[in-house]
Structure formats: structure tokens, C-alpha cells
């Protein structure tokens, strides 16, 4: 009975064709595992451009780092300059001494620019002399002018 079952089973397997003889596979396995054809350790050089692609992905170009570094440095410099300007203005505005010094320096600069090098001095008798005479001198001038017209 058992032999008959095996026979039928083998016939079905033959018809199915799914099981190769063991010795065939033994040969294949031997071949796979021989030292000449050791597929586990087979070494095949990869394409030459393979490393360049990998390297580009794991190490982004340095120029981008530098560019980023320069940009960030410039931004920090801008912020530093703004802070210095704000501190200077606030200190100057709220400290009386510094404020006066600042205003004086500005004023002096304007005055120096507008005045002649030799300071102008009023005559000493202008304030001490009779104001009437000065008025007279002032009012006489048209008379003399009128005389001359005559």
C-alpha cells in the first residue's frame, strides 16, 4: 500500500516537475561553494563613479559650508554694529556729561565752520558812549545824503 502511494506521489511529482533530483542540486551546491566560485566572497569592482555619488551625498561640498559661514559672519557683524550704534546713542542721550560733550562738539564744528578764523570784536565805546550820539550819527546820515542830493 505504501509503495503504491509513493509510486503515485512520484508520478505526480514527475508530472509537476517541481523537484529536481538531489544529485543535481548537490552538484550545484558544490559548485557554489568551491573556492573558485565562492559566491559569498566574490569581489567585483563597482563602477568608478559610484564613490563620487556616495561621497557627494555624505559630504556636501565645502563651498556651501564656507558660504554659509561667511553669510552667518556677516549677519553677526551687522547685529554687532547695530547694537554698538544703539548703545552709543542711548549712552549719549542719557548721560549729561557725554550729551553736553557731544552737543558741544557738534556746535563747535558748526560754529567753526561759519565763523572767520579771527574773532570779531566790537569797539569798546559802543556800549559806553552816548546812545543818543550813536542815534544821531545814525539819523544824520540821511541828512548828509539829502544834502548831497541837493
Amino acid at each position: 500500500m505504501e509503495s503504491r502511494t509513493n509510486e503515485i506521489l512520484n508520478q505526480k511529482l514527475d508530472a509537476f516537475g517541481a523537484t529536481p533530483p538531489d544529485d543535481v542540486w548537490d552538484n550545484i551546491e558544490k559548485n557554489i561553494q568551491t573556492s573558485d566560485a565562492l559566491l559569498y566572497n566574490i569581489e567585483i569592482p563597482p563602477p568608478e563613479d559610484s564613490w563620487e555619488s556616495i561621497s557627494a551625498k555624505i559630504n556636501p561640498p565645502k563651498s556651501q559650508h564656507l558660504k554659509f559661514g561667511r553669510t552667518s559672519n556677516l549677519q553677526w557683524l551687522k547685529y554687532a554694529a547695530i547694537i554698538i550704534v544703539i548703545l552709543t546713542i542711548s549712552t549719549t542721550a542719557f548721560n549729561p556729561n557725554m550729551r553736553n560733550t557731544f552737543i558741544n562738539s557738534l556746535d563747535n564744528a558748526n560754529i567753526k565752520a561759519s565763523l572767520p578764523e579771527k574773532p570779531y570784536q566790537l569797539p569798546k565805546n559802543v556800549l559806553t558812549s552816548d546812545s543818543a550820539s550813536s542815534h544821531k550819527n545814525f539819523t544824520n546820515k540821511p541828512d548828509s545824503q539829502s544834502k548831497s542830493f541837493k
Binding site: 509537476f16 516537475g17 517541481a18 533530483p21 552538484n27 559548485n31 568551491t34 573558485d36 566560485a37
Partner: peptide, 17 residues
């Protein structure tokens, strides 16, 4: 499904990796 191959693959040892 492949047909059963009765012959052993005798030339396997000549195969390169």
C-alpha cells in the same frame, strides 16, 4: 513550472563564478 531534468548537470564544475 519547469520540466524535470533527469540528467545531472555534469558540466557545473567548469562554470566560472
Amino acid at each position: 513550472e519547469e520540466k524535470k531534468e533527469d540528467e545531472a548537470a555534469n558540466g557545473l564544475d567548469k562554470l566560472e563564478a
